[in-house]
Design a protein around this nucleic acid. Structure first.
Lengths: 361, 361
DNA sequence: TCCTCTTGCAGAAACGTCTCTGTCAACAGT
DNA sequence: ACTGTTGACAGAGACGTTTCTGCAAGAGGA
């Protein structure tokens, strides 16, 4: 009586288990597992037979059971520091979207999936998912989540140089200081006399290092710093800050904006003040958005290469998970790219790509 | 001898298990489980004691074991149909980013996390993660992944009306046809005589329904359709298509662009042809991007309300997962919002319709 | 013929949790 | 005093895999 139960139980629950496959194929559980996972010493005939039966029954191995047994879930956490009550900033900055996309691709290519998790340590969510490792974007100084994960022996790789003594496994970042210095030099070479900066009020590494580099550059060339800060997470505050910057008595003749929307904000502000770009005002902003290629005029942007960063972060993380001594450095600096467009070139050859061919052209 | 082993084993593996907590607290496993999960009949003293011991040992319940036992993983899949070889379109359209963000928030608020998965049925990844349900954005006609999931009894909710006989649990979508008709009426009311459309070559529901609505409207008002198609996934193709549209002999005096970047593309194209917006050309595009608020001129956009959609999709899905008969309809239509800006409003003083300045004018 | 080695497969023990089913004491009701 | 009830906990399966160990049978060598 009780002997008939096991085979029943499997099918009663809806999905077929490995036991059902074994019974249907007339082999043992071991053989099924080996056949499907390509392990063990089995003749091809048996392997084919088992696979066929498994297909016929629509067998799907239980991920939970496998994870429990092997200790590997194939899941990687992805978390972004939060500014407001929303868990993410995907929308505000194309950077995050690009980075996340690249990270997802890279993870999938190696058989892992990404789980989006809140930066806040919502215990119930974090502890309910078995993670093999975690990617942290812009971790704050003493992120409790990161420390917790590391204490559990889970690898953590951060996008952004960890501040303080944050014990990450590895990190990837740009050389933000070099990037800012490069832009300032670029603007100065284009004829800028007084370069302004649009920066943020938050204390993350990116903002801090970039602002510091700006101040350092000013000191070096003997220019008085001209900058405005605003809370970068507020989409409206950027326009106001841009306006403030151009309204100053010591109005700059060139501006670098640290955040993605600064380009359009500055352009709009310049228009309000009757400033022509690039003739009266040179403009550069840090952005991954393609809209700046078609604005009037096109705006020079600094790309942080989020795709390369996302890929690198995931590679490092998976190497750590799988215990591979990949030989890759655990601290990688990805070069930035300055995409020079009209807005930062004084009296450029005015022709852009194609001359107008319309009736009025 | 063998009695001492179990307690050792737990700590040897690094992380403390429920057994270790039970031993350290001097109670049984059952009591620990009940104490931590708030079940059973335990005096508060015992409960507190157990919790304290668990904290001291840094006990974290194994998500895999819990999932295996309870059958619930707290994980929701999120998948987007892919156009190219990249798994997503996050970047190209702010819509996806917004929607995903809202969905993530809503899921986290109810204790679930989102797993990003490829639309292609990469078997190794899909079957390696235990999903309680899945959100599918823009499923194609006979998506094999969806059918597979449904066959396994996993709820699937789609963003976008499922085409064909796709067996989803529920869906949420806009009324795209009504939205397009509304925009065309809006443009006509602003004085448009010949309205053009910038549409896509792909066969997804959004593109299909929108195009159909346009053609239908044209037929109704007796206008010859003027539209250009292009592969929406290609960021460069949009600019070319916009150019084509304005280069036509029967050049429209108003254009609606179905995709996010169309606004800037059309604006740039108009500039090349010396057309003033909105005087010579009225412009509307479907976008969630805020850049259109500060372009010159600001462009009227149609918002599909991705945040509301993302939230609704997740609520429906979790209701289905938890077996709640929420009373919510399983087919929800979210209204769109037309954000009217300068680009679609003819200047008030101009009472007469401006004569078309083209060859056929 | 006997021993050894390999092949092909089966048994059974984990992995760590939840939960159903007890058990034992104390205590109240008749 | 005997039984029924309730509170407080313990025992012992599952859940569905993977994998270590082991057994039988045949192949090959001496």
């Amino acid at each position: 009586m009780s002997r008939a139960e096991p085979s029943r139980r499997g099918s009663r629950h809806g999905r077929a288990g490995i036991r059902d496959v074994a019974a249907a194929a007339g082999v043992s559980i071991t053989t099924v597992s080996d056949a499907l996972n390509g392990k063990g010493r089995l003749p091809d005939a048996t392997r084919r037979h088992v696979r066929e039966v498994a297909d016929r029954l629509g067998y799907r191995p239980s991920a939970a059971a496998r994870t429990l047994r092997t200790g590997k879930s194939g899941l990687i956490g992805l978390t972004v520091t939060t500014y407001g009550d929303e868990p993410f900033t995907f929308t505000e900055f194309a950077y995050f979207a690009e980075m996340a996309r690249a990270a997802t691709s890279a993870a999938l290519a190696r058989g892992y999936a990404l789980v989006i998790l809140p930066a806040t340590s919502r215990h119930d969510v974090w502890s309910n998912v078995a993670l093999d490792g975690t990617v942290v974007i812009d971790p704050s100084d003493h992120d409790p989540v990161v420390s917790d994960l590391v204490r559990q022996g889970i690898p953590v790789v951060s996008d952004g140089r960890p501040a303080g003594t944050l014990p990450v496994t590895a990190w990837v970042d740009n050389d933000h200081e070099a990037a800012v210095l490069g832009i300032l030099d670029h603007l100065a070479a284009a004829g800028a006399r007084r370069i302004g900066l649009l920066t943020g009020t938050s204390t993350d590494t990116y903002t801090r290092l970039s602002t510091h580099a700006y101040l350092h550059w000013c000191e070096r060339v003997g220019q008085d710093p001209v900058y405005e800060k605003y809370p970068a997470h507020d989409p409206c505050a950027g326009a106001v800050a841009a306006d403030r910057l151009l309204a100053r008595p010591d109005r700059p003749d060139a501006v670098y904006g640290l955040f993605d929307p600064n380009g359009t904000d500055l352009l709009a502000a310049a228009r309000r003040y009757g400033l022509r770009v690039p003739d009266d005002l040179l403009l550069v902003c840090c952005s991954e958005s393609t809209v700046y290629a078609t604005t009037e005029p096109p705006i020079t942007t600094l790309s942080l290469k989020p795709r390369r960063i996302g890929t690198a972060v995931v590679q490092l993380l998976i190497d750590a998970i799988e215990g591979l001594d990949s030989g890759r450095p655990v601290e990688q600096v990805i070069p930035t790219e300055l995409i020079v467009r009209t807005s930062s070139q004084r009296r450029p050859p005015r022709t852009t790509v194609s001359a107008p061919r319309g009736p009025s052209g």
